Computed example of a mutant assay.
Amino acid sequence: MDNQYKSVLPKIESAYEKLTQLEKSVADFFLSNRQIVDFSAKSMSVRLAISEATLSRFAKKCGFRGYREFIYLYESSLNQSELYETVAQSSKSVLRAYEILLNKSYSLIDEDQMSRVTEMLSLARRTYVAGKGSSGYAAMEMAHRFTRVGVDINALTDSEMMMIQAVMRQEDDLAIGFSLSGASREVVGFLQESKRKGATTVLVTASADEHHKAYCDEIIFVPSLKHMDRGNLISPQFPLLVLIDMLYTSFMELDRARKLKLHEQTRKAIDK
């Protein structure tokens, strides 16, 4: 996957909710378009009945330096466009949907951010990871895996316990919230209260919302399923589990020998 060109489509999807209505019309065009046309600013302003300045603002909100850079990468990404066609309800379509999601994950991953969050996990006195529904199952998986390599980590899936534990957080604690929509009242409340108590906070989400920055030290973006397959073939846990694997791999690179020893000791204890 390292040799593949990173698609720009996941970046558009992540920024979608913070766009103005006019900018969303631009996003909708590029998300649905599958062919090379005249993408010049002059031509697109006529095609979409917008100003060239709107195209520039749209590109910058999606994380590009300007419209010219966006179009250069967008045209390259069209070579991968067959991955974004509507998939049929079959076994092959499930595998294809996973391929789409993995490509989106690759496009969104920030290696520097992975290193920062890994360090947070290493330095934290205690870590709590919260989630509701499918996100809650992912939180339990993360707690299970990291506990086995020496992290003092607990999963929170109950609304009351989220708030109780948030109130008890301290400056050397780490609070992680899983919410693909970014709108889970319980998870947001857990992070907000944990932040007020001085804890370090991380939100894992598929939604770009400027308001999250007020109470999150890090916001990790995972792929959205909104523009992928409309048959709901993929469990919403999947992008979270991919992220957990990446964090786990990064974490294991620090003091690897000691952590492997701990993992082996816990395996033997389970097998007894």
Rank of each mutant, 00 (worst) to 15 (best):
N79S: 01
S179V: 06
Q165P: 01
S134L: 00
N3G: 04
C216W: 08
S76R: 14
R126H: 13
T20P: 05
T249Q: 13
L22Q: 08
D172I: 01
E253T: 06
S179H: 11
K213V: 01
I234M: 10
Q35T: 06
R256P: 05
L108T: 04
M44P: 11
H227S: 00
S122Q: 09
C216H: 03
K61G: 01
V46S: 14
A206C: 14
L73W: 14
Y106W: 10
G133T: 00
A130D: 00
I164F: 13
I220S: 04
C216P: 06
G63W: 06
V46P: 07
G63V: 02
T205F: 12
V129Y: 02
E160A: 14
Q265D: 02
V87G: 03
S235A: 11
A49D: 12
R196F: 10
G66Q: 04
F58K: 01
D255Q: 09
L225H: 12
L19Y: 02
L83D: 05
R185F: 09
E69F: 05
D245R: 06
D229T: 11
I109M: 13
M168H: 15
L101V: 09
Q265K: 11
K272C: 06
V222L: 03
E111F: 15
S90H: 11
S250F: 13
A155F: 07
G177P: 09
R47L: 13
R47D: 01
R185W: 04
S235Y: 04
K259L: 02
T266K: 11
K11R: 15
K213T: 02
Y215R: 04
T86C: 01
S224G: 08
